[in-house]
């Protein structure tokens, strides 16, 4: 919708103050929070993802857009919750045990939030049991595991196994990513999917969420 173009552009150019100002103005004008999200913030972030995928944007641009998005989301969140608007899906993300590299994981979180997912960030060096416990507590639909090191990739398999042992594996989807990770590895350890970068992670999450 044309009236949201400026909000979309503010997301795309990472202007957080402008995003806050415009989001508040739309709310003051009585626009529904869901409409502002679906027609302003999410389309803006979609452009950011595309620009990243196409090589026009790099990580700083993406981070600035994410920071701007969060300003808008913070204003909308209480209203979305009050009107019982559900996110696309709930995703738990974390870097697996033994690994504290979080750039990739954070970028995936950014893109997922920008795509209308609710993201719960378990942080780094997350043990398989913690993943299982947090997934249960928050009733997530998808779990995203990240690893940068070849030495910590086995933690991904252990996490998949932990969900199996717990009996909750069939209730969630597991996607994995990180520099040494491949589709073959995802298949080998019994994960549901692999995404090569943050922009493709959102497509994978949509597929897994069935949207």
């Amino acid at each position: 919708m044309e009236k949201y173009v400026e909000l979309q552009e503010s997301i795309i150019s990472g202007k957080k103050d402008k995003v806050g100002e415009l989001t508040q103005r739309f709310l003051d004008d009585g626009r529904p929070a869901k409409e502002i999200l679906d027609e302003g913030l999410i389309p803006g972030m979609a452009v950011v993802g595309r620009k990243f995928q196409e090589g026009e944007y790099f990580i700083p641009e993406m981070l600035l857009s994410a920071r701007a998005l969060n300003v808008g989301l913070d204003l909308l969140k209480p209203l979305l919750e009050a009107s019982d608007v559900k996110p696309v899906a709930k995703v738990l993300v974390g870097t697996v045990k033994g690994d504290i590299h979080d750039i990739g994981k954070n970028l995936v979180s950014i893109m997922l939030r920008g795509g209308g997912f609710e993201v719960i960030d378990a942080g780094v060096d997350v043990s398989p049991d913690t993943f299982v416990q947090m997934a249960k507590e928050s009733s997530v639909d998808i779990v995203g595991l990240s690893a940068l090191l070849t030495t910590t990739m086995p933690s991904m398999q252990e996490t998949v196994e932990a969900f199996k042992s717990d009996g909750s594996r069939d209730k969630i989807k597991i996607m994995i990513g990180g520099a040494p990770v491949t589709t073959e590895y995802a298949e080998k350890i019994g994960a549901d999917g692999y995404a090569q970068n943050a922009s493709l992670a959102i497509e994978m999450a949509r597929n897994l969420a069935g949207v």
Binding site: G55, F58, I59, P60, E61, I103, G104, A179, Q196, N197
Partner: peptide
């Protein structure tokens, strides 16, 4: 730099 490209724009 990361696995796929530089972290920032080369010009930056």
């Amino acid at each position: 730099a990361g696995q796929e490209r530089m972290m920032m724009k080369p010009q930056d």
